[in-house]
Structure formats: structure tokens, C-alpha cells
């Protein structure tokens, strides 16, 4: 494997969990809900996926379990914020804290175990193509799933009736309600979808990225995913670009250090954040565009009048 292939592979691996977690949150926020519990749902996905893979010996069963665990956490969030109409920010934070604590408890028996790694895709002929074969046709399956989800979400939000309803609920829940759509049900579904992809992102960490269980192994990636959603102005294409920009600058920073270029490491470590902020500034210079896509009801609770 040549050096450039290795770099690109590393960038893809670093970006995929961010994209997975963020694409779900994008849908959640488009429906007008702010779920700050991504980190907690991710870490629960990571531990459940790892544990299930260890027990059954299959990474795929682990991945399914991670999706179930992420969804379960998100449904707890949905019940609190949609049915009981609690404050979304506080509830999201408590989901994160609960997830971090609970995952440590569940995972205590799995610390120090080498994990099962999900294999790479291998297609005869195509994967063996020189230069591009391994990059295009030889990734792990979740990379393709993350990209497929991005395209799917973009399509559904923009081109389908379902997407229109989700956006309507996020823009103005009172109008959507008056038109006869069940705001609460739509939001439940979107939150569950967000929980599922967060769980998937967690499974990516514990079954692909670093196949092992370590407490708190998400190390803040949920918060980066959350920032990326805002950075993307709630557009899936930009979200994917943002995730890869972040991952790319992150890995190239490490690469520059290994080359011994003498650039201060603290500066390189902060570069992904600087790059993201700069991109955010450039985007927000176009006020119209960011206003159009911002879900106007974001973070506001909805109580249907009876």
C-alpha cells in the first residue's frame, strides 16, 4: 500500500463515525428537535456493539445491537422531550451523561479484551485495480453505508413528500399541526433515526476504528458531529464535505508532525477546528442561504392543543 493510499484510508476511517452520527442528527434537527445526547447514544452503541460481537462472535450482530441500543437511548430522549415536553437541551445533556455512565457499567466486564474487527469489502477484480481499487472498492462496509445514508437523506429531504413533512414540522410545528400532521409522531421517528445512526457511529468506533472497548472511547466525537450539523447549514452534501474536511485536516496534521516539519503540534491539533470555523464564517456570509435552511422551530417543545 502506497503512502497516499494509507493517508486517504486513514482520513476515511477518521471521518466516517463523524458523518454517521451527524447525518442522523441532521434529520433530527430538520424536524425541529435539538438532541445533545449524541455522545451518550454513540458510546452506548459502542459498548453494546462490542459486547454483542464478543458474545456472538459476529461483528454484524454487534452492529445491529449497537443500532438497537442507540435507538433505545433516543426513544428515552423522545419520550422525555416529546411526550413529557421537558427542556431539550437539559434532556440531551442528561442522555449524554447517562450514556457515558451506563456504558462504563455495562462494559466493565469487557475492558482489556481484544475485539472483533469488521472486515473490508473485497470485490474480485475491482478491489485489485491499481491505485483506486482499494480506495473505491475496498473499504469497510460501514463507509459505504454512511455515504448511502447521506445520499438517501438528501434525496428524502429534498425530493419526497416525507421529507417535506419533516421540514414542515421543523419549520413551523403549529402550521404542520394545523394541516393535520402529527408533529409528535414525526419527531419520534426522526429522533429514533438519529439514535440509530449514532449507535452505528459508536459501533464503528468499537468494531472498526479501534476494535476494543474502552470507557469514554467516543472522546468527544459526538460534540464534533453536532457542530458539523450546524456547519453544514442542515444540508447533507455539505455535511459530508464538512466531515471529510475535519477528518482530512486532522490526519494531515498528524502526518505533518511525523514528517518532522517543526510546526507546533498544538497548532496542528487545533487546525481541524480552525478550518471548520473558517468554513462556517464563509458560509454564513450568505445570510439568505443559512436562514432558509435553519429549522425555525429548532429546540422548541410542542404541545398540541386539544
Amino acid at each position: 500500500m502506497s503512502a497516499y493510499e494509507a493517508i486517504i484510508l486513514t482520513i476515511i476511517t477518521a471521518s466516517t463515525p463523524l458523518l454517521l452520527a451527524a447525518i442522523g442528527e441532521l434529520v433530527v434537527e430538520r424536524s425541529g428537535v435539538l438532541n445533545l445526547g449524541i455522545e451518550g447514544m454513540m458510546v452506548m452503541g459502542a459498548v453494546s456493539g462490542f459486547a454483542m460481537a464478543q458474545i456472538t462472535g459476529s461483528a454484524w450482530v454487534g452492529i445491529l445491537m449497537a443500532m438497537v441500543a442507540g435507538t433505545a437511548m433516543s426513544l428515552l430522549f423522545a419520550f422525555m422531550t416529546q411526550t413529557l415536553v421537558t427542556n431539550q437541551v437539559a434532556t440531551g445533556l442528561s442522555i449524554t451523561l447517562l450514556g457515558l455512565g451506563l456504558s462504563g457499567l455495562i462494559g466493565s466486564g469487557f475492558v482489556g479484551m481484544p475485539g472483533i474487527k469488521l472486515g473490508y469489502v473485497s470485490i474480485p477484480v475491482l478491489t485489485d485495480l491499481p491505485y483506486v481499487g482499494k480506495l473505491v472498492f475496498g473499504q469497510d462496509p460501514l463507509v459505504y453505508i454512511s455515504l448511502g445514508l447521506t445520499v438517501g437523506v438528501a434525496y428524502v429531504l429534498k425530493r419526497t413528500r416525507m421529507g417535506l413533512i419533516i421540514r414542515a414540522v421543523g419549520q413551523n410545528h403549529d402550521s404542520a399541526h394545523a394541516l393535520g400532521y402529527s408533529v409528535i409522531k414525526v419527531r419520534y421517528a426522526c429522533i429514533a433515526f438519529g439514535g440509530m445512526t449514532s449507535g452505528l457511529a459508536g459501533a464503528y468506533l468499537s468494531l472498526v476504528y479501534t476494535p476494543q472497548w474502552i470507557e469514554n472511547m467516543t472522546a468527544g466525537r459526538g460534540w464534533i458531529a453536532l457542530a458539523l450539523v450546524v456547519f453544514s447549514t442542515w444540508l447533507p452534501g455539505r455535511l459530508a464535505a464538512g466531515a471529510y474536511l475535519f477528518g482530512g485536516v486532522w490526519i494531515l496534521g498528524l502526518y505533518a508532525q511525523g514528517m518532522g516539519m517543526g510546526i507546533p503540534s498544538q497548532l496542528l491539533s487545533s487546525l481541524p477546528y480552525v478550518a471548520t470555523i473558517l468554513a462556517l464564517i464563509v458560509i454564513s456570509t450568505n445570510r439568505r442561504l443559512s436562514v432558509i435552511n435553519t429549522p425555525a422551530s429548532l429546540g422548541r417543545g410542542f404541545v398540541p392543543d386539544r
Binding site: 494509507a6 486513514t10 476504528y209 472511547m217 503540534s265 491539533s269
Partner: peptide, 23 residues
Amino acid sequence: VVWVNSWFDPGKEADAAKVLISQ
């Protein structure tokens, strides 16, 4: 030498290892 500016970030530690091996 690659500084990751963190005591504990499994993902970043893994990335650094991959980068160093590729170099």
C-alpha cells in the same frame, strides 16, 4: 514523534499510529 495533545483519545492514537507506519 507525533503529539496528539491528549492523554486519552483512542481514535486519535490509532490515527497517529497509522500515519507513523505509513511514513
